[in-house]
Design a protein around this nucleic acid. Structure first.
Lengths: 204, 204
DNA sequence: CAATTTATTGACCACTCCAGTCAATTCGTG
DNA sequence: CACGAATTGACTGGAGTGGTCAATAAATTG
């Protein structure tokens, strides 16, 4: 990515990115502490500034990086031929959960990006941000006739989205607090149970 | 409440409590700024310390205060004879939404209390915390036979809880960002639509 | 091996913000 | 007016800030 960095040990770079995303996702830009970041990443103050120049450039790098990771995940792993939005959203959840395994704070960080800035600001500083990709997730090739006739589809979709989000949230909390570890197949099995319940509830 | 305060103009006190809950719910204790609190409340630095002594005592007062408000809300407004947990949880949502009208950050603040401390710590510093009250909300007098036979009730309850929480969250976001104003009857009507959908889905 | 380049350190600087204090002022009331 | 209570905000020592840079360690080269 971009010539901001010299060649760097990838594992060390990930450590820095993770501690930086952690700090920036829990503090607004001004209050986020580069001291905390270097301490958490186990590197010296000087090295961070040697790599990234200053705090703003570090933040800009993280912004591009996190968009890239999400975009790659969606582009490479989503099955666009699947017309069932429940399965589509399940895939999205699984993709996010897998990203979290490698970059635990990437999702929090990018959520903050959207809360703290308007989409216009993001697009302006990030011209090739794949905006249409995000909206297509919920619409492209989706067969809404699967829903029961007379059902308020908008509200049903909300319940579905909220269930996925809260499921992921709680799963993450459990993993972070050590009461379970991430196992792709086990997680998928439990998520499937929720999918089935929602299918019975809302589909013909 | 407790002799921490001299007689104080109630409206001014509410202003202080609200700005303090706002600050403490967005910053950890150490980083929360008394300067911000007094500025936001429109009072002088000295007055805050005249009232509360120091930052810790202010925080302790807020803790007791927020528990009290929630407890009063539940005790006075919940209909314990209602055996339908969907309606029970709807009542809880409405109570919380009404509290938010007067103390917008009380819910965020008390959520942080639970995230940052174990229940043991809270109970220790707050001996008459109404723990059983909280658990009874989900169990006392509830008729679980209303659910469809063979349904995974635990998961259904999760979907119900998550729907209520996310509904409240999004409503609050809309109100805070000015795209709508709080109207008890309109909100209740929309919440009822979700309740009806969940009833159709999960009840016999 | 020495020589040279590259990666990395952390003490240091000027600055901002912090919780808390207290002499001075304003306010409410009889 | 007088007197006590409510309220102010300039001020303090200390902690934490982003960023620099001379010095050191490690890697690479001949």
């Amino acid at each position: 990515m971009e010539g901001v960095l010299k060649a760097v040990d990838q594992e060390k770079l990930d450590r820095i990115l993770n501690s930086a995303m952690k700090e920036f996702s829990s503090q607004p830009f001004q209050k986020a502490s580069t001291n905390k970041i270097v301490e958490d990443a186990g590197i010296s103050k000087g090295l961070l500034f040697h790599y990234f120049g200053n705090k703003e450039k570090l933040f800009a790098y993280l912004e591009k990086f996190s968009f890239k990771v999400i975009e790659d995940g969606i582009v490479n792993e989503l099955d666009w031929d699947n017309a069932d939005i429940l399965l589509r959203l399940k895939e999205v959840s699984m993709i996010k959960l897998n990203i979290i395994q490698k970059y635990p704070y990437l999702n929090d960080f990018s959520l903050r990006l959207f809360k703290d800035q308007t989409i216009e600001e993001i697009m302006h500083r990030n011209p090739n941000f794949p905006l249409e990709l995000y909206s297509q997730v919920y619409t492209r090739n989706i067969d809404f006739s699967l829903f029961k006739d007379g059902l308020d589809v908008e509200k049903a979709l909300n319940i579905i989205k909220w269930t996925m989000e809260k499921f992921s949230e709680e799963l993450r909390w459990k993993i972070e607090h050590g009461s379970m570890e991430f196992d792709q197949t086990i997680v998928e099995r439990e998520l499937n149970m929720y999918i089935d319940m929602l299918k019975t509830s809302f589909y013909k």
